[in-house]
Design a protein around this nucleic acid. Sequence first.
DNA 1: CGCTTGTTGTGTCC
DNA 2: GGACACAACAAGCG
Length: 538
Amino acid sequence: MASGSYSLMWFRKALRIHDNPALEHASRASSFLYPVFVIDPRYMDPDPGAFSPGSSRAGINRIRFLLESLSDLDSSLKKLGSRLLVLKGDPDQTIIRCLKEWNINRLCFEYDSEPYYQSLDEKVKSFASSAGVETFCPVSHTLFNPLEIIKKNGGRPPLTYQSFIKLAEKPSWESSELNIPISSLPPVGDVGSCKIFDVPTLRELGHSDFELDENTPFQGGESEGLKRLKDVLSNQDWVANFEKPKGDPSAFHKPATTVLSPYLKFGCLSSRYFYQCINDVYKDVKHSVPPVSLLGQLLWRDFFYTVALGTPNFDKMKGNRICKQIPWNESDELLVAWREARTGYPWIDAIMVQLRKWGWIHHLARHCVACFLTRGDLFVHWEKGRDVFERLLIDSDWALNNGNWLWLSCSSFFYQYNRIYSPVSFGKKYDPNGNYIRHFLPVLKDMPKEYIYEPWTAPLGVQTKAKCIIGKDYPKRVVCHDSASKDCRRKMGEAYALNQRLHGLVSEHDLTNLRRNLEEKYQTAEMNCRSKRQKRSC
DNA sequence: CGCTTGTTGTGTCC
DNA sequence: GGACACAACAAGCG
């Protein structure tokens, strides 16, 4: 193309300038470059019916993080002589209209393995090919191409971390220069009759009633992500010796992990660039190794992306060949208590408050509440907890979120259902004084440390003095952990036996039968108590 | 079939 | 802080 191309760079994730092969390609030999982000009203418009402020799909914290990331991207593009063109509408229809209106002959966007993008991209690509528009969709969100790994494994994804590591080996780009600085970009061409917006504010999108008392301390955008990365890397010793299971989930003034996950989720930070930076630190020093090392965490991310892509119905129990079929109970009452931080277990409730306010909680805190909701205490379906995380986390990532819920509920990957996190003693060993609880549940701030993890055991006099009466100022616990966790173990055992007997081919009918049996067998004191309450209220 | 391996449990004992 | 019992799982490999 002698006169140069009219190129459209479609931003979805990869909200960055550095290590962005699609952007690089789009800017090469182009007369005009149109950098586009499409706001889908279904994703961004307020939904007053949702259980937390935000849209129907995302809580307010993640929408804010995305808008901050877009603003940052826009100002970086402006420094390079370009800008971000924000459009509103159905993403596929909007992109197709732009392609026509602007006579685009080259469309560039990052490959995305999530089902949502797979079907969206299919539509856009099929139009592009019929219209003679060249498309360029590089894999740059993950370290490896998940399709290649699946192919290498004979068409099925590896199901253990170690087999994944063996298949993956070293990434092809390990020692190439990824972060080639861009000094300028081609100009944006005429936009014709397409309505172009600036990056909107939350208020402009109609979100106004969000809480202001304590919001996420994490700001979106590539600049912020790179700054955070620099901070992390400046502590070489910490990077080299990082071991994931050893972090302190109750540390919140200074989190025990990098909190780079939200930047990786939106692609504000390139996972490949991060990988190279860690490798640089490792060069001359003794360091931890996967799976627990910092580099190991990036490999976990790729592992889950690969399994997720190669597993039909990965985000469901039914029809998911790697998921155990378990007769989770259908109690919305218990789900809501968990979601609204009213379980009566301060450690669990404090975590759920931090999740709602910050949109981020420590990895082990995620384990505690996920285990508690599913196989540990409440026996509620992992898909319901998954939905809550999906909405509230600023770093919620389709493959990782579903993969971790499968893991924690002992539905796949991990099967030792007798290992249950105690909602009392797990937090206590990190934070014996309960500072974390006092911060996120101020109603308990004056409870003596002897009782703060189990306030229902505090004598009434102590409760009065702490101005926190259990059952009035703070809820009574929704189940008794000792008996509930024992019941969960037994239920899991029976469900596993059924899965084994039927070789995983458990029908809806089998599951209903087992559920009925279990309910008869294992009704604990609380369960009886709860059903009596329900009957009374009916 | 038997053996090894698997990121991250709890409670008790020394 | 390390060892052990607890009660015990699945996947992968030979």
